[in-house]
Write a protein that binds this DNA or RNA. Structure first.
Length: 937
DNA sequence: GGGCTCACG
DNA sequence: GACGTACGTGAGCCCG
């Protein structure tokens, strides 16, 4: 049949699949002869998954996998340097190229490559041809060079993210629609493919220019009109180079084809061919899997070796992770006999993935509704325990639905397993489940946590939530909780979800967790982060769980009184503000305030932001207030009170637990990229302290009768770490001798004596010290100190002159990040820096973040080490660790034991780097105590 | 739901 | 002459 309307062509970017597979998998070899086959294995998994996922009514009618033939193409005649700096493919990948072609043919999918052309050219020609014939096209690739083809029935699909790329997505990426993408690419160039472009012009700028001038030729013709001289020169002087670049990136619909679209019609795999190939490759598990899918007997293994029993575990894991998900296969456990069978299986295997379903995300209030277990990929079950009938009476109470195990019985059966030292419990964000189970008297141990594994390997690359990990690494979108619970006002709690639905959702979560674990466990080692995971991530889980469950006592009356006082003051201020403005308006609306200040009142110095709104930040208002304007001064006061009231005195009261009378925050271990913790619900890491008025909120954080709050914090820990890492003798000596580090810096920089130093000079040195930690810039320092930029730059220059090691540290860190795509802390924590080679303003952000990360991250590692050692160190003392605020730990302790506690904790904190890292500066800890947090700090 | 503003280290 | 910039977070509010 002639290809035409109603037909749908899939074009698979084969080369991208291969490289993806190669880098995603460990270097596997064929058992019988050592032939490298890792990439082939991954490639086959991807093809199998593709075939399985494309069977329904929406299935394509035509499909082809397109490969690059060789590295030399017609583009090298246009520009000899094109892709010239591209490294040769790795030694163990090269022999796998022909095998991937063979694999494609084994799947009975058209396999296409043409001498002298890139895969992209063939994809372009096929897309055009199919589109012109009236069919639709999906290109399975995430290659930006193909985005110019999108539109008119042609779309792309990123196969890893399962994300559709249409015209709008292209616009998002390039700032122009597909037909102008080549213009933008021609201007921006591409350092990876060696497309020269215009120097200093990145995608952002190129898009702006094309948007303004319409297209590339108009831009080149009117280049003289460009206002910014640098850009103008870059374009005027490189016009020819830009035109060449355009020819390099433009894909040609007329690339010759030696076959017709009809040749690409979808064909079913021929069982003998496909199984024969897979078997020859010795992909045992995949062979079995494919045979099952084709409903034929798997062929006997070619050798006696059965991979599962004889090692090469990774390949089994990879293949297992890729098995299709089947929610119909999940079991629902309703009686002790069935549960006993699963427990026996768990004991046999020595591990289990577990997930709890509850009525709330707040572990301190959540009620347990069910538990899911998974013992191997696809083998999962759900135990409903607390599901209730839909409606309920007036008070929301309702009966448990029938046919559920009694909660107590299930837990008493599971407890010995969950507490068994020889059985590994695997979870995604185990702190949550551990806390839920702890409330039922179960101490889960030992554990592994897939969220933390991902964090140890991929911090900075992407988030570590289960849905995202599953989609990214298993190519599967798990059932969204929203589909069960709904959202907004009509949202229900999990106990109201029908058991049948709950089984599919909950068991799948355990299944996903198990598969992620299978995948991540061997990868940790290859990423060299096993130690980080095992010493800085995993052991923190029980420590934080204890702290969160302990909570901190907060006095409701104190907060309530403060709220009332704030409300009164605010009302007064509001009246004054309205009077000054000559009419009422919403003081809390930056938009309205900006209009009042800069339009109605016509005050000077107003600046509009990028979306047309007047800036009304504190710095702007402070400047206005300093010029004697009353209204902005009052607004500043009002804002401070409003913040304190809504975020603290009001909101904190809501967080006091009805039974414990305490506030239980939750720390996310994998929240901040640098290794810091983040505190949520409520955030207890940003309780005011800098202003006198705000600091009083800390008076509401109290010690119970007979006890004291004790606070210990590291003094200048980040500067000390900088002094150590950058190896600055003067700084290190100052820290060893206990000098005032900022005064010392000022003395060194400005040649002034320490005695009788001007506080302003010291303040400037302090700002520079902090700036260095943040990846200093003249602009930033100038803004912070409110001095001219040239002066700020002068300070920085002098600083680098005096402490050349700092410069060295910065340069080396950037170079390391560029070469490796990540930076590291002293303890080996890895912070990925995917944007480090970006062009444009993003580059600055990435560079400063890369400079900051090892310093902030090392400090975070140090306090993590201290916290992990703390339970043992203070065992037997009448004391509890309550809170962490980045460089501070807060404890509650019986009065008489405060001295002993401080001594013990200080010892642990000051020695926390030992013995893994021998710091060449001392860490010192300052301690305070009192009846409330304000007094203890 | 994004942007603004502001609290902390 | 002004692409834009100090690093890392979370929460509450306004507004479309």
């Amino acid at each position: 049949m002639t290809f035409g309307k109603g037909h749908h062509l899939h074009l698979i970017d084969g080369s991208a699949f291969i490289f993806r597979a190669y880098h995603a998998l460990p270097p596997l070899t064929r058992k019988s002869d050592g032939l490298p086959v890792g990439a082939v294995a991954g490639f086959c998994n991807m093809l199998f998954r593709y075939v399985e996922n494309n069977k329904g009514p929406d299935a394509p009618t035509h499909v082809a996998v397109i490969f690059d033939h060789s590295s030399k193409t017609f583009r090298n005649e246009i520009y000899p340097l094109y892709k010239a700096q591209r490294p040769e493919p790795p030694e163990d990948l090269r022999p796998q190229f022909p095998l991937t072609r063979e694999a494609t043919r084994a799947f009975n999918i058209a396999c296409i490559e043409t001498e002298g052309f890139e895969a992209d050219d063939i994809i372009a020609a096929l897309s055009c041809k199919a589109r012109d014939a009236g069919g639709s096209v999906t290109i399975l690739s995430s290659d930006k060079d193909l985005m110019q083809l999108v539109g008119d029935g042609v779309e792309m699909l990123d196969p890893m993210k399962n994300k559709r790329i249409g015209r709008d997505e292209v616009f998002e990426k390039f700032g122009v629609y597909p037909e102008r993408v080549v213009d933008v690419q021609a201007l921006a160039g591409d350092s990876i493919d060696n497309v020269p472009g215009a120097p200093g012009i990145g995608i952002k700028t190129a898009a702006l220019l094309i948007q303004e001038y319409g297209d590339l030729e108009s831009l080149l013709a009117r280049a003289g009109e460009i206002k910014q001289p640098k850009r103008r020169a870059a374009i005027e002087e490189n016009a020819e180079q830009i035109r060449i670049s355009k020819r390099l990136v433009a894909l040609d619909c007329n690339t010759p084809l030696t076959f017709s679209l009809e040749d690409l019609e979808v064909r079913l795999p021929v069982a003998d061919d496909l199984l024969g190939f897979l078997n020859r490759m010795e992909f045992r598990t995949l062979t079995t899997r494919v045979a099952a899918s084709l409903k034929v007997e798997p062929p006997p293994a070619p050798t006696a070796a059965v991979l599962r029993n004889e090692g090469v575990p990774e390949i089994v894991e990879q293949v297992e992770a890729a098995l299709p998900f089947d929610s119909a296969s999940y079991a629902c456990i309703r009686d002790a006999e069935a549960l006993a069978a699963w427990i026996a299986r768990i004991r046999d295997l020595g591990h289990v993935a577990i997930d709890t379903e509850t009525t709330s995300l707040d572990e301190m209030r959540a009620e347990l509704v069910g538990i899911s277990l998974c013992v191997e990929a696809g083998a999962a079950c759900y135990i409903p325990l607390g599901h209730r009938a839909g409606g309920g009476d007036l008070f929301g109470a309702s009966e448990l639905v029938a046919d559920q195990m009694p909660l107590g019985l299930a837990l008493s059966m599971l407890k010995p397993v969950l507490e068994d030292e020889s059985i590994l419990k695997i979870g995604q964000n185990m702190k949550y489940d551990a806390k839920i189970l702890a409330r039922h008297g179960i101490r889960v141990a030992p554990i592994d946590d897939t969220m933390l594994m991902s964090y140890a390997m991929h911090a900075g690359r992407h988030g570590h939530g289960m849905d995202e990990l599953c989609d990214t690494y298993l190519g599967h979108k798990p059932i969204a909780i929203k589909t069960l619970l709904g959202s907004g006002k009509s949202q229900i709690t999990f106990d109201r979800v029908p058991v049948e639905q709950a089984v599919c959702y909950a068991a799948e979560d355990a299944d996903v967790t198990f598969r992620l674990w299978k995948l991540f466990k061997p990868q940790l080692h290859r990423a060299r982060v096993t130690t980080v995971y095992e010493t800085l991530e995993r052991p923190l889980v029980p420590v934080l769980a204890e702290m969160e469950m302990a909570g901190v006592q907060v006095d409701r009356d104190t907060l309530s009184r403060m709220s009332n006082a704030f409300a009164q003051k605010m009302a007064g201020l509001e009246a004054e503000i309205h009077a000054l403005a000559g009419g009422p308006f919403n003081v809390g609306s930056p938009k309205q305030l900006g209009e009042i200040l800069f339009e109605k009142m016509g005050l000077p110095g107003g600046q509009k932001g990028k979306n047309g709104a007047w800036g009304t930040g504190a710095d702007v208002l402070e400047d206005l207030a300093a010029e004697g304007h009353d209204l902005p001064a009052r607004v500043l006061d009002w804002r401070q009170l409003s913040k304190l009231k809504s975020t603290y005195t009001d909101a904190l009261q809501e967080h006091i637990h009805p039974e414990t009378g305490r506030v239980h925050t939750s720390y996310s271990i994998a929240g901040a990229n640098t290794g810091r913790l983040a505190s949520t619900d409520p955030n207890l890491q940003n309780i005011p302290v800098r202003s006198e008025e705000g600091r009083r909120i800390r008076e509401a954080f109290v010690a119970p009768p007979g006890k004291l709050l004790v606070s210990l914090d590291y003094s200048q820990i980040e500067l000390r770490i900088l002094a150590h890492i950058a190896d600055i003798p003067a700084l290190k000596q100052a820290f060893r001798e206990g000098h005032d580090i900022h005064a010392m810096t000022a003395s060194e920089m400005f040649n002034v004596p320490l005695e009788g130093m001007d506080p302003m000079i010291r303040r400037q040195a302090k700002a520079i010290n902090f700036g260095v930690i943040y990846g200093i810039s003249g602009f930033g320092l100038a803004r912070n100190l409110r001095i001219p930029r040239a002066d700020a730059q002068g300070f920085i220059d002098r600083y680098f002159e005096r402490f050349p090691g700092i410069r060295g540290y910065m340069d080396e860190t950037i170079a390391f990040a560029k070469a490796n795509g990540h930076v590291e802390t002293l303890f080996g924590r890895r912070i990925n820096t995917p944007e480090i080679n970006a062009k444009g303003p993003g580059a600055g952000f990435a560079r400063r973040a890369a400079i900051n990360a090892p310093i902030q991250g090392t400090a975070a590692d140090v306090i993590r080490r201290a916290m992990i050692r703390m339970p043992k160190a203070i065992r037997g003392m009448p004391a509890t660790m309550l809170l962490q605020v980045h460089d501070e730990l807060l404890f509650e302790v019986e009065e008489e034991a405060a001295d002993a506690l401080i001594e013990r904790v200080r010892e642990v904190m000051e020695g926390a780097a030992d013995p893994a890292v021998k710091l060449t500066v001392p860490l010192t800890v300052e301690a305070g105590r009192g009846l409330n947090w304000a007094a203890a700090h």
